[in-house]
Amino acid sequence: MSVLKDAGHLFRFVGIFVVLFLIFLVVRGFVVPKTFGEYGHYRAAAIGEIAANPLHFAGHQACAECHADIVATKAAGAHAHVNCEACHGPLEGHVENPAAVVPVLPNTATLCVRCHEASAARPKGFPQVVAAEHANGVACETCHNPHSPAIGSGSNAGGAQ
């Protein structure tokens, strides 16, 4: 009995502990996001938030809806598998509002060499030229239609073969 009385102050210290712990539990109930733990140890709502990020690249199917002719030209040539936005850049804005967002025509002087300037690091079978010797300053599209680059198909859409 007297031991309990003499240990009374210890319970006061432990009491502070217990009170703080209870406050912690209550606050935790309010602060932890509702969807936390729905799928795992994270806020499930974050998945939806990230999925709602805005698009910039529309995707080649969106292009084909209006530009079927160019897609057909492209499909017949060596650039069949090069998507429109690979050269023209991200154009979701154009898809959403074709009148307001007009794509800028890429400059072939810098565009073509990015892929086709000869370098020993590129795969051997990949078509490459030393641009300075090959074109001598003449613009690429003078001879090559970027949508179907084989010579002779230059202005003749769909004529590559």
Partner: peptide
């Protein structure tokens, strides 16, 4: 800091020592 306890009897100090 006393947490409202001023018990410093012989017995309580022995408890403190043990604890």
């Amino acid at each position: 800091l006393t947490l409202g306890s001023s018990n410093i009897s012989e017995g309580s100090l022995r408890v403190d020592e043990k604890a």
